[in-house]
Nucleic acid binder design. Structure first.
Lengths: 238, 238
DNA sequence: GTCATAGGTGTGGTGATTACACCTTTTTCT
DNA sequence: AGAAAAAGGTGTAATCACCACACCTATGAC
């Protein structure tokens, strides 16, 4: 009883490795692009202005921009009407034979938490406008013809869920989760039947949110997530 | 529709400010001590060894240890049987008139997510041993005579929940959440009736986990958390 | 054709972090 | 008593990330 679980002790003495500002910035912008939060072709704010928003020096920001330019996420044009633009066809997931270590799979548990929390709070707080937006996104998924298009709507749907929860912190967490998920998602096939069924769940979820049925919404969401988990379970490395 | 919610955009361009290694280390160890994860009087590993575990240089670790020593969390003794020890009576919360800005309250939403996720997964995965430990902790709370003692058991209960979910990432997140919560908790009074009622919920929660009733457990937990939230709601700064 | 607005470049300085060598204190063992 | 061992305590120099700032270059709008 005086003994704590081993997991807690491990967490305390686990390696400390804060990311550098440069790394964080690449991660932030790169994720936003890969998730389609920054639309292809759209223009970023001018460097000096963006540096101020991010509260970092222009030099560091430029390091990040250079990295993302070299990786094909961004293109920059000089001159008066120039600027830094999101590439028309940004690279989607990591490289082709990307290594997926055990750590990558740990997101799944974290995802359960973030999504459940978002849905619970959305059921309590979402306003009509936010619910309409969620509905629009399900319509978008229904009309999508390629998986990539579907996936972009799907990502926005889940992030919008966090927005409907009116919690900036959950929006950040959800963005992070979706970014890490996309590596895993790219591993699996997506027959249209699966997508259709998945989108049915999205629609029913919105209905439950409309009626304020938090337990129902949470329970449905858990099932929704389990779908992905079961498919991925067959691919586990260990 | 091409417009994204404003919250997402804000999250992308929000200030980037990664903590330093020194700050992270103080935070980690300090939180562990304040939460009672490192018991008063217990001994930390020798500096060189701890530095290796944390994957940082001894110099940086020593900066953190010095800070925590000056703040009264640690004491160090020299000589062969010396070492660095957790103080017998470490300072609990932040200073007396600690400033609680709006940011401090954002934890509450994040807490909802982490706790709900932990409970859901615990209902799915917890083994008998872990459930017994949770029960022991409720017994500890029942027998506690001072609030501080109760609170220590309470913290361990919630962290053990995350351990029962078998998710290291949730353990880390839960530890972080509990650490940030403790500033808020210290703001409110705790009559014994409230604590008793709260612990009743703990016990019922364990029962639901035993029976594998995830929806029931999650729903109860949400109510459990709401209790704290409602009390705190009256103290909001804005 | 000029000027405003953008990206591109270079310099120097500061603070965080590291590696490494060495000192001091205290217990334990012979 | 004396030596060895194990711990914390100290100092130094190198490196790296980040920043502020000044300046150059390209180019579209008027």
């Amino acid at each position: 009883m005086t003994e704590d679980g081993a997991a807690a002790e491990e967490a305390v003495f686990a390696p400390v490795r804060p990311p550098t500002t440069f790394e964080e910035t690449v991660e932030r912008l790169g994720t936003a692009i890969r998730l389609g939060l920054l639309a292809p072709g759209s223009r970023l704010p001018p460097e000096r202005q963006l540096a101020r928003k991010l509260a970092i020096s222009r030099s560091t920001l430029r390091q990040a921009l250079t990295t993302l330019t070299q990786s094909g996420h961004l293109v920059s044009r000089r001159g008066r009407a120039g600027g830094t633009f999101v590439a028309e066809e940004p690279p989607l997931a990591g490289g082709p034979g990307e290594l997926l270590d055990e750590a990558a799979w740990a997101v799944l548990d974290y995802r359960v938490a973030i999504e459940m929390g978002a849905v619970q709070l959305a059921a309590e707080r979402a306003n009509a406008e936010q619910l309409s937006r969620l509905e629009e996104l399900t319509a978008g998924m229904a009309g999508a013809e390629e998986f990539e298009e579907y996936r972009r709507f799907d990502i926005r749907f889940h992030i919008s869920l966090a927005e409907a929860a009116a919690s900036p912190r959950l929006v950040t967490a959800m963005t992070e989760v979706q970014g890490q998920m996309s590596d895993l998602i790219s591993l699996i096939a997506h027959p249209t039947e699966v997508l259709t069924r998945s989108n049915d769940q999205h629609r029913r979820l919105v209905m439950l949110l409309r009626s304020g049925d938090a337990p129902g919404a949470v329970s449905l969401l858990r099932k929704h997530i389990e779908g992905t988990e079961h498919i991925l379970a067959g691919l586990l490395p260990s």
